[in-house]
C-alpha cells in the first residue's frame, strides 16, 4: 500500500489498454495519455507492461511507503526526492520502508508516470483500472489521504539498468488529413501553421490557438451528424479553433475532424503543456 500525501494538479490511476471494444456502448478507451512512458515505467520495475501505474499531471505528487517498494518514474522528468534526497528518474529505484517520495514540477513535458513493482491494485471496472475523467468509469481521481493497494510481486526480475533514455520530442505530430478535411477552405493551414497549446487542456484533449480554420463554401453553416472519433482526432468547432483529442475523448463528436494524429504520436501529444508550440506534418 502507498499513502498519498499530495497530488498536485491531478493524479489518476491508468493502465495501458483501457477499455477497448465497448465504444458502441458509449464506453471510451481511456488509459495512459502517454502509453509508451507507462509501458517503460512498468518494464523498469519488472511489471507486465499493462500493470496500472500513476499518471501525475504537472508534478506535485507525494506519497509515503509503509513497506519497501521498487518504483520507476518516466515521462515528464519531474525532479524526485526520497526522504529529501534527490534521485534519478527513468530507472528502478528502491524506496525503503517508511520513506516519502516527492515529485517537483517537471521542466518539460506534462505527465510523469509512477510505476510501483506489483502495480496499483485498485479494482478494475469493465476490465481496466484506468480512470476515465469524462465517463467517470474506473477508480476516482486520486486524492490526498488515499491508500492505494499494491499488487503481488511479479515473476519477472527488476531489470539491470542504469538509466533508460527519456524519449525526445521535436513538437511535431504526424497527421493523416480527414475524414472531414473537405469541410475546410484550406486544410493545408493545419500543416503550415505553428499552433499553441492553450490552458484548456486535460485528459480529454487540448484546444489550440492559431489561425482560424475557415469552413469551405457550402459547409459554412452545415451540421455534421455526430460520428465516431478516435484518439488523436483534431476536431474543429465553428469557432475555427481546433481541439486535439487524447485518451478520454468522447466516443462520438459533432464537429468535423480535419485530420487525425497517428496513433504513436498521440503519446507525444499527451506530453504537450499549455503554452507549448506544436506543428503538424503529413504522415
Amino acid at each position: 500500500m502507498i499513502r498519498v500525501l499530495a497530488t498536485g494538479p491531478q493524479v489518476t490511476v491508468q493502465d495501458l489498454h483501457g477499455r477497448p471494444g465497448r465504444a458502441d456502448l458509449g464506453v471510451g478507451v481511456s488509459g495512459a495519455a502517454d502509453r509508451r512512458a507507462l509501458a517503460l515505467a512498468n518494464r523498469l520495475v519488472g511489471n507486465d507492461v499493462d500493470a496500472a501505474g500513476l499518471e501525475v499531471t504537472f508534478g506535485g505528487f507525494a506519497a509515503s511507503f509503509p513497506t519497501t517498494a521498487v518504483v520507476a518514474l518516466t515521462g515528464a522528468p519531474s525532479p524526485v526526492t526520497i526522504d529529501g534526497r534527490a534521485t534519478d528518474p527513468h530507472r528502478p529505484v528502491v524506496v525503503p520502508a517508511g520513506s516519502q517520495v516527492r515529485l517537483g514540477t517537471p521542466p518539460t513535458g506534462l505527465r510523469t508516470y509512477v510505476a510501483v513493482r506489483g502495480g496499483i491494485a485498485v479494482d478494475p471496472v469493465l476490465g481496466s483500472r484506468s480512470t476515465d475523467v469524462v465517463s467517470g468509469l474506473g477508480p476516482a481521481v486520486v486524492a490526498e489521504g488515499d491508500e492505494l493497494p499494491i499488487g503481488p510481486r511479479p515473476a519477472a526480475a527488476v531489470p539491470w539498468i542504469d538509466l533508460a533514455a527519456p524519449p525526445r520530442s521535436d513538437g511535431v505530430l504526424r497527421v493523416v488529413l480527414g475524414p472531414r478535411d473537405d469541410w475546410f477552405t484550406d486544410p493545408g493551414v493545419l500543416l503550415r501553421s505553428t499552433w499553441t497549446v492553450t490552458e484548456d487542456a486535460n485528459r480529454v484533449g487540448f484546444r489550440l490557438d492559431g489561425p482560424e480554420l475557415a469552413r469551405a463554401e457550402g459547409f459554412a453553416d452545415a451540421e455534421l451528424p455526430s460520428e465516431g472519433v478516435i484518439r488523436g482526432s483534431i476536431q474543429v468547432p465553428p469557432s475555427g479553433r481546433p481541439t486535439v483529442f487524447l485518451a478520454d475523448h468522447p466516443v462520438t463528436g459533432g464537429y468535423p475532424v480535419i485530420g487525425v494524429v497517428v496513433d504513436a504520436d498521440t503519446d507525444v501529444a499527451g506530453q504537450l503543456r499549455p503554452g507549448e508550440a506544436v506543428r503538424f506534418r503529413r504522415a
Binding site: 477497448p20 458502441d24 478507451v29 451528424p225 455526430s226 460520428e227 465516431g228 472519433v229 478516435i230 466516443v251
Partner: peptide, 26 residues
Amino acid sequence: LAADPPSGTVDLVPAARTVLVRVASA
C-alpha cells in the same frame, strides 16, 4: 460487421450516417 468483424477490428462505432471502424494496428 458486428456479427463478423473484419480481421484486426477493435471497436465499431455506429452513428447517424457513419460507422467508425478502429483497428489494432495500421
